[in-house]
Each structure stands twice: as C-alpha cells, then as structure tokens.
C-alpha cells in the first residue's frame, strides 16, 4: 500500500481559491472546461447551482466554458428553471437516441460526454443545498495545476437536512462506511485512502472518461474509481476536501438499494480483475421486506447491472471527437 498517496494527493479546496491562477493555467494549456449537472426532479436546488457557477466561474472568472444539464425526465420544473437561467439542457433520451435510453445518473453522465465540448468535465450532483463555487474550482485546481493528476474526487462533512429548518450536524456517508470501505479494506486496501469513494462530485479529463465504461445507475462512482485505478494507477487521482455538503436525507431502504448496486458492481469488477471467482451469476433483484398490517411482504426491485461501453467506442462520438481514445498518460 502506497503510504504517500494520502499526503501527496489530498488537498483542501482553499489551496485553489486564487481563481486567476486557475484561469491562467487553463489558458496556457488551451483547455475548455464543461460543467455537467445530472438531474431528476431537482427544481429546489438547480437554479442556485447554475446561478452561482455562472456568476462566479463564468462572469467573474472565465473558468467554465459551458454549463450543461442532462435530465432523466423530470416531472417538476427542473428543465424550465435550468433553461431560464441560461444552462444548456438536454433530455437524456434525446441524446444519441439510436443507442437507446436508460434511467439513471450514470446514463446521464455518459451521455454528457457526447453533448459537452470541454477537455475537462466537472460532474456535480444537482441536489446540493449549500452549493458554493468551491465545489467546482476545488475539483479543477489539481487538474489544472498538476500535470500528473487526471481525475479528482470530492470529500466533505455531510450534515443532513432534517425537517424544514434544522440541520443535524453529523451523519451521511452510511453506505461508504458500512459497505464500500469494508470491501476496499478486504480486497483493495490502497483504495481506503480515498475518503469518500461514493461522493457524487468529481472531475477529470475527457480522455479518462471516454475510455471507461459507465454503469447506468448507482454503481457509477465505484466502477469509475476501480477502472481508473486499474488503467492508470492511484497517482492520477486526487481528492479534495470541500468541507461541508448538505444534502437530502435518504431512508434506510433507499440506501439498501444503493448498497446492493455498489456491492454488485464491486464484485463484478473483482471478478474481471481475476481477484475472485464466482461460481454463479449474481442475482439482479434486491429483496426487502415490509410489514403491511400483520403480514410481512417482500418488496422486490429488479436492478440490472447495465453498463454503457466506453464512449470512445461509439461511432457517432468518434465522428464528433476525432481524437477520442487517446491515452491521457
């Protein structure tokens, strides 16, 4: 286990708060940067994310070149609000329609590769209540200032918003601590240095994202980390302390379903790496139980592990980005 990684590749966002430096580095390298916000019914938070990023990182400092929203079919006003504040909005099913469409965050991120034009892409969840532009420039800093860093990932404190007006000071990250960290400790201890492997905020060079597969759902963060580590090693990754992120609380059942996908993704990757041998295929149904009156009834949810292939393998993409598939190393 590389003992130096945690010290050398962990940064606090304030290290990159001189935005002029970042803009200079971006111009010197001749890069374009895209911000992608995947959405599904995010009308309460989407406007604030777009406004703050546009004000601070486009108007005041030209760090971002575009803000793109990829929507999975919101039934609320997400699309209308995002458009009204000047983001480019795409419905996921309208992007690469010949490739079909699936519902899920990973699907949106994968399709974002086709509609964005940046050399670097920043992915932020669209449900961040305390959004601040540090979420974006913190992730961009190491990518712009350190040539060997190709992928950055956030970590933070995670207070949970409970009720209408109170915040519980600790909590969150339960799937990380109860599921992914034990698995990393058992099989890939080096990766335990990544403090929040399931955080939804990350950024990286296009060459990285276009050459790895994208699971369509919750497994995206796990698979992305494992694939990047396998292909390029841990040293191309940096993690950034963004301090505090307030998000919606999820109930235990929802977290159980998330854990199901994460474990399945992890085991499949281990098998691919030759680290384990599975005697049978994994089931694709999460079975949870609920008490209805006096009867315990199963609540079964089918969760197929569909993965999108590396975007660089899609012909339409190669036509649009002729230099795709270049090795970033």
């Amino acid at each position: 286990m590389s003992k130096n990684w945690l010290a050398s590749n962990t940064f606090h966002y304030s290290r990159f708060s001189d935005l002029s430096d970042l803009v200079d580095a971006k111009h010197k390298k001749g890069l374009k940067i895209s911000l992608c916000l995947p959405t599904l019914n995010e009308e309460k938070t989407i406007a604030k994310e777009i406004i703050i990023m546009k004000s601070e990182l486009m108007t005041r400092y030209p760090l971002l070149d575009e803000i793109v929203v990829i929507d999975s079919g919101s039934m609320d006003n997400t699309i209308k609000i995002a458009e009204s504040f000047g983001a480019r909005v795409y419905r996921s099913d309208a992007v690469l329609p010949e490739q079909g469409t699936y519902l899920g965050k990973g699907e949106n991120l994968w399709k974002a590769l086709f509609v964005t034009s940046g050399d670097i892409i920043v992915y932020l969840d669209a449900d961040i209540k305390n959004i601040h532009h540090r979420f974006c420039y913190g992730l961009l800093g190491p990518l712009l200032l350190y040539d060997h860093i190709k992928y950055t990932k956030a970590f933070y404190d995670r207070p949970i918003a409970i009720g209408k007006s109170k915040i519980r000071p600790t909590g969150g990250g339960r799937v990380t601590e109860l599921v992914i960290r034990p698995l990393f400790s058992l099989f890939l201890p080096e990766l335990t240095q990544i403090l929040q492997p399931l955080s939804g905020e990350y950024a990286g060079y296009r060459e990285i994202f276009e050459t790895i597969p994208f699971p369509i759902g919750y497994g995206i963060e796990t698979s992305m980390l494992l694939d990047i580590c396998e292909k390029w090693g841990l040293d191309v990754i940096a993690q950034i302390d963004l301090e505090r992120r307030i998000h919606r609380n999820q109930d235990t059942k929802a977290l159980g379903r998330m854990a199901f996908v994460v474990v399945k993704t992890f085991l499949n990757r281990l098998e691919k790496l030759g680290m384990i041998e599975m005697k049978q295929e994994l089931y694709d149904r999460m079975i949870q139980y609920q008490l209805v009156k006096n009867d315990i009834t199963p609540d079964v949810m089918k969760m197929t592990g569909i993965e999108r292939p590396p975007m660089a393998s899609i012909p339409e993409y190669r036509t649009k980005f002729p230099r795709s598939g270049k090795n970033p190393a």
Partner: peptide, 17 residues
C-alpha cells in the same frame, strides 16, 4: 444561528429566512 439558512431559488423567487 442554528436555523437552516440555505435559500431556495425558483424561476421567479428566492426564499428562506
């Protein structure tokens, strides 16, 4: 000070304490 002061923005309004 312990009240959640995070604001919500819609197309036409901003609300919060």
């Amino acid at each position: 000070g312990d009240m959640d002061h995070n604001y919500t923005i819609t197309e036409t309004t901003i609300h919060g304490p």
